[in-house]
Amino acid sequence: EALPADLQQRTRAEHPAALYNLYGPTEAAIDVTAWTCGDWPRPCTPIGRPIANTQIHVLDEQLQPVPLGVAGELYIGGVNLARGYLNRPGLTAERFVADPFGSGGRLYRSGDRARWTAEGEIEYLGRLDHQVKLRGQRLELGEIEARLRDYPGITAAAVILRDGSAGQQLIGYVCGPAAQEEDALRAHLAQTLPEALLPARLLALEHLPLTPNGKLDRNALPQVELAERAFEAPRTSLEQALADMWVKVLGVERVGRQDNFFALGGHSLTLVQLAADIDRRWSVELPFRRLFEHPTLAALATELEETLAVATPLDADLDELDGWLEDLEEMTHE
């Protein structure tokens, strides 16, 4: 299991013993890289450099080395490689490949994403099989999890892709004192991540489920119904007007005050349409960032109400004139 940066820092602060981060898959027992943890903060704990008689390569899909700082798949060579998988020649041929650099040996395809740093260290970035495809975009779940763990008060996080009534959606699971702050967590993610990487729901758990050997058991994460929140009808005319817009752009039957735009299937294109509808109705241009920061109907209505309250008299006059012209047009058609 990867060593989170915050766990490294806490361990170094609380215990006088040295701390080493060792990396190595079973197929290259026992470890193939090592790094001595220091007291200085690092956003990502490196797995270090290759040990003696071991070669580490970070390659692209054409088995070519990638530049410094660019993610690729980690390949392992050296005397510590296994011969293969017992009675599984097909899997052996897939994972143990000929060394493309002319050594005459083999390399093991680890299935792990990694990158070289300018200091000559390797950073582990997650499993390749944790990449998912959502609305035509390839996403790295580990990147979202890392951003969640950056939030003060979050001690652990996991993100998975699940099917729901609104289609495929990202679901996040968080632990820690701040785990209940779903809207604040979403706003935190929106500061550094594109809309496609924002989970539709964030669920608070006491702890993440683990396998017997202590790794995250993604299959044991609890199921969630994306529309499980109790329906709460809009209270004001402004909330109702926004709800009608959401119904139109999202294609849903109804929208409640606490419904989340993205949990109902919203994405970047529907967000553009919503922003245009708001501009046409109230002559107000809400920046996308503010729409991301207020994903529920009630929160967005409050934000819009505050924006309208500071609108200039000219804006108000134009709104009144626009409404008068609409009424006149309806009377003309009648």
Rank of each mutant, 00 (worst) to 15 (best):
A2P: 12
P4F: 15
A5W: 12
Q9P: 06
A17Y: 06
L19N: 02
N21W: 07
G24D: 05
G48T: 05
R49D: 00
E61M: 14
L63G: 00
G69I: 09
A71R: 04
R83S: 15
F96K: 09
V97P: 08
V97E: 08
V97K: 11
S103A: 10
R106F: 11
L107Q: 04
D112A: 02
D112R: 02
D112Q: 02
D112S: 00
E119Y: 11
D129C: 02
E145M: 05
E145I: 06
L148V: 02
A158C: 05
L161D: 03
S165M: 14
Q168A: 15
C175V: 12
P177A: 07
Q180L: 15
Q191V: 11
A196R: 07
L197N: 13
L197I: 08
L198E: 03
R201M: 10
L203V: 14
P212M: 01
G214A: 06
L226P: 07
A243M: 01
K248D: 15
G251P: 07
R254I: 10
V255H: 07
R257F: 04
N260M: 06
N260F: 04
F262S: 05
V284M: 03
L291H: 03
F292H: 04
A299M: 11
L304G: 01
A316E: 15
E320I: 07
D322H: 11
E326V: 14
T332F: 11
